[in-house]
C-alpha cells in the first residue's frame, strides 16, 4: 500500500508537471549573442527580471513580423503593384505534403495582404479562396470559414475592414494551432508568410535600395534567429521541417554579416491619449554584396517553396 501511495503521489506530480509544460512549452531564456548593441546611457536596474522566473511565450522568445505589416511598409514606400512577384493562386493544387501546404498558406496570406493593400479586389478573392482550400486540407477551416469568405466579399471595397478580417483569420488559425498538436504547422505558416514578404522587400530593393528597405531587411536578422532557434528547431521530428531549417540556416550565415547598432533615446508618453513615442534608434550596417546575397538566397528558397 505504501508503494501504491508513492506511485499515486508520483503520478500526481507528473500530471501537474505535464499540465504546466503543456501550457508553457520550452524554457529557453538564452539571449541572442550575435547582436552588437551600443548604448549611450546607463542600463536601468529596475527593468531587470530574475531569469529563472521568466517564461518564454508560446515557446518562442521573439515574434515574426506580420506579412501584412511588411507589405504595408512596401506599399507606403510608393512601390507600384506588381502581380509578377506573387505566387499563382491556383498552384495550391500541386502542394501535396503538409510542409509545402503549410508554407504556402503563409505565402498566400502575404499575397492576400499585398493585393488588399493595393485595392486589388478580384485578386484578393482568388487568394482568399486558395488560402481557404489549403486551410481545409490542413484541418483549420474555422479560420477561413464560409462566414469569413462572405465577410471578405462584402468588404472588398473597404481595405481597412478587409485587412482586419484577413489578419484576424490568421490569428484564429494561430490560436487553434497553438492549442493543438499541430504547432509545427503554425510555425511553417509563419515562416512561409515571412519568406514571401521578405521576397517582396528584396524585389523592391533590387529596383530601389532605399535606407528603408535596407533597414527592413537588415532587421530580419533577429527574426531568422528566432525562427530557427525558437520555432523550427522544436519540430525536427516532424517530416520535412529539418530541410526548411537547413535552407533558412544558409540564409542566416548571410544575415550574420549584418551589423546592428543601438542608441537609446528617452521615450515620451502622453497618458491622456494612451500613446508612448519611442525615439531610440537601431542602425543597420550592410554592404551591397551582403544585401544582394540575402535577397538572392531568399528568392531561391521562395522559388523552391512555391514550386513544390
Amino acid at each position: 500500500m505504501k508503494s501504491s501511495k508513492s506511485i499515486v503521489k508520483g503520478f500526481g506530480f507528473l500530471a501537474l508537471s505535464s499540465i504546466l509544460l503543456t501550457a508553457c512549452p520550452g524554457n529557453d531564456t538564452d539571449k541572442d549573442p550575435e547582436i552588437e548593441i551600443e548604448d549611450t546611457t546607463k542600463t536601468s536596474s529596475e527593468g531587470k527580471v530574475n531569469p529563472l522566473n521568466v517564461v518564454p511565450v508560446g515557446g518562442a522568445m521573439f515574434s515574426v513580423p506580420s506579412p501584412i505589416q511588411l507589405g504595408q511598409i512596401i506599399q507606403k514606400s510608393g512601390a507600384p503593384y506588381n502581380a509578377d512577384i506573387l505566387n499563382n493562386p491556383k498552384a495550391y493544387e500541386s502542394y501535396v505534403d503538409l510542409v509545402s501546404q503549410s508554407l504556402n498558406l503563409g505565402v498566400y496570406g502575404a499575397d492576400l495582404g499585398y493585393c488588399a493593400l493595393y485595392d486589388k479586389q478580384q485578386e484578393s478573392i482568388g487568394y482568399i479562396r486558395s488560402a481557404q482550400k489549403l486551410s481545409d486540407i490542413l484541418g483549420i477551416s474555422d479560420a477561413f470559414d464560409v462566414e469569413t469568405i462572405q465577410s471578405v466579399e462584402r468588404n472588398l471595397d473597404n481595405k481597412d475592414s478587409l485587412l482586419y478580417i484577413i489578419s484576424n483569420s490568421y490569428r484564429k488559425a494561430d490560436d487553434y494551432l497553438q492549442t493543438s498538436d499541430l504547432k509545427h504547422i503554425g510555425a511553417l505558416i509563419i515562416v512561409g508568410g515571412w519568406i514571401e514578404s521578405v521576397h517582396f522587400a528584396g524585389i523592391l530593393g533590387r529596383e530601389n535600395k532605399s535606407d528603408e528597405v535596407v533597414e527592413m531587411i537588415g532587421m530580419q536578422k533577429h527574426t531568422i534567429n528566432t525562427m530557427l532557434d525558437k520555432m523550427l528547431e522544436q519540430y525536427f521530428n516532424e517530416p520535412g521541417v529539418e530541410e526548411v531549417y537547413n535552407d533558412l540556416d544558409d540564409i542566416r550565415t548571410s544575415f550574420n554579416k549584418v551589423n546592428i547598432k543601438y542608441e537609446y533615446v528617452a521615450p515620451e508618453t502622453d497618458k491622456d491619449k494612451k500613446v508612448t513615442t519611442l525615439k531610440s534608434k537601431a542602425i543597420v550596417e550592410m554592404s551591397d554584396e551582403v544585401f544582394i546575397e540575402i535577397i538572392e538566397k531568399i528568392n531561391a528558397i521562395r522559388t523552391k517553396i512555391t514550386a513544390s
Binding site: 517564461v55 508560446g58 515574434s63 515574426v64 506580420s66 485587412l163 494561430d174 497553438q178 509563419i190
Partner: peptide
C-alpha cells in the same frame, strides 16, 4: 478596433 490590424499571432503563457 478596425483601425488596428492584428499581427496574426497570439503570445501567451500560463503564469
Amino acid at each position: 478596433t478596425v483601425d488596428y490590424v492584428s499581427d496574426g499571432q497570439n503570445y501567451r503563457a500560463f503564469l
